[in-house]
Design a protein around this nucleic acid. Structure first.
Length: 205
DNA sequence: TGCCAGGCCCTCTTTAGGGCCTT
């Protein structure tokens, strides 16, 4: 039975060899935090060996080098552990369509799946933070005045930062609706409506 | 050899194009 609350779920982030699993790109790192009633209660972070060398662009972008990956467990081992970690939980990622493609691809390779639904923090931010100049993760952290020390583009760090942006948006929704608990279904509804309709959705929920 | 993502969202739109967001 999935938890129906938007503050009790898994927030995840992949680092990968590139942008498209359809073009042969693979995951090289997974990071995730488990949120329970708005509090991080568990974490998951592992590098994984994708079976090929990563480009110098990816080494520079993520700080994850071929030397680091050469001693990492293969994708199928790490993803089997991660599959266990996410069972029975709804999922959030920043630009979820990207992470969902890689999650689906890696789990399909090990004949595994998951039972949660995905929500996207970029889509929610476009509705909730309509005045934000940008909805990239680093810009939202700055826009919300959230302290951050450390480097973006590592999986666990980005998952932790996404969790902070996520809970800040839930706080905004709580303030606007008076709801004590924001339902996951309301998030899904918000991300599917137009920006102009957000106030009406919040008022009528 | 040459090519190379995909979904969302806005607008000078819908018989389309381009920017954003993720690595």
């Amino acid at each position: 039975m999935l938890n129906s609350k938007a503050n009790s779920l898994i927030i995840l982030d992949f680092e990968t060899t590139g942008l498209s699993p359809d073009n042969g790109d693979r995951a090289i790192e997974i990071g995730a935090v488990k949120l329970e009633n708005g509090v991080v209660t568990d974490r998951f972070q592992e590098l994984m060996y994708p079976g090929k060398r990563v480009s110098s662009f990816i080494e520079d972008y993520t700080g994850i080098t071929n030397a680091m990956l050469s001693t990492a467990a293969p994708c199928h081992e790490v993803m089997a552990r991660f599959s266990d970690f996410i069972q029975g939980q709804n999922l959030v990622a920043h630009n979820a369509s990207f992470d969902k493609r890689f999650l689906d691809n890696e789990l399909r390779r090990i004949s595994s799946s998951y039972d949660g639904q995905f929500a996207c923090s970029v889509l929610l931010s476009r509705r909730i933070n309509q005045n934000a100049p940008s909805h990239s993760l680093s810009n939202l952290i700055r826009y919300k005045g959230i302290p951050s020390t450390g480097g973006f583009h590592r999986a666990l760090f980005d998952a932790e930062m996404t969790a902070k942006v996520w809970t800040a948006m839930l706080d905004d929704i709580t303030e606007k609706t008076g709801l004590e608990e924001v339902p996951f279904a309301l998030i899904q509804k918000l991300t599917k409506t137009t920006k102009a309709n957000v106030a009406k959705v919040l008022a009528n929920y």
